[in-house]
Amino acid sequence: MSAISELSSLSRRKGRATAEEKKANGRDNKAAYIFLLPWIVGLVAITIGPMIMSLYLSFTDYNLLQPPEWTGLDNFTRMLSDARLHNSLGVTFTYVFIGVPLQLAVALLIALVLDKGLRGLPFYRSVFYLPSLLGGSVAVAILWKQIFGTTGLVNQVLAMFGIQGPGWISDPSTALGSIILLHVWTFGAPMIIFLAGLRQIPNMYYEAAKVDGATTLQQFWRITMPMLSPIIFFNLVLQIIGSFQSFTQAFIVSGGNGGPSDSTMFFTLYLYQKGFGQFDMGYASAMAWVLLVIIGIFTAINFIASKYWVFYDD
């Protein structure tokens, strides 16, 4: 929620920069709302209604086939004693805390490598982006098994060294790890955003640094990182939001059951099972709002922390 507090600092800074403008006409309410018109119409007509509906449903017993019945906080108290839900929270947090930094690091590294000074860059970029094109295709499960199955590529390589590897996706102790790898594998989206961000850094900064005799590493920390920080911040915020809601990959690889032994039972996968598998949409809605609060807290922390490391040019 306190994306807000960060924005307040942003507007403070902006206030300084645009004193002139303020003198002229104060706020740009009219212009702003015209620019925001499509978004506001969408919010009111499409987004907010169903959201509030789901909030209402979270206080009901709703099985999809019959009208919902008000049960107050019942769904929320049930969550306290739902061991599988607690397990799914653990799985999701592990995934977010390991998967997000890992994927962003890989994406940034590759983006930097693919940014300059090499022939055939468009080709490499496309190759590295290819896995992300697959999205939630049904083929992903099959392909992933070709690599991490009991007789997959990894174990074939290990066998050359006389090592008998486990069934990476079917062993409860390694299954989550293989899903995290799958996530890292599809780093294409943040990579592209990084690349687009790198394009925006004015070249003269590097030239000036070079005149001053700065090393590549110094250039990276003094120019690239600060100039790219709004984009890094964007990727971080969105990846955290997205990873908390991660669903498709685990759904496809485990065949929808979060197996083996619930080791890849993500929060949203459990939510989906409750809502559509067991017709307990009231409980699923309550779960969704709990997740929203969790994501909201992390996003707020992100926005507060961003004051200390994100550099805006305006």
């Binding site: 645009t18 303020k22 789901s54 449903l57 989906y272 969704a288 997740l291």
Partner: peptide
């Protein structure tokens, strides 16, 4: 642009992507 309720609206915009989509499918 500077406008009334900017922070609130920006917050709401972010909120809309934080809710798992499975629970809004049916109302939508």
């Amino acid at each position: 642009l500077q406008f009334t309720a900017k922070k609130l609206l920006f917050g709401i915009m972010l909120l809309t992507i934080m809710l798992p989509f499975h629970v809004v499918i049916v109302p939508q």
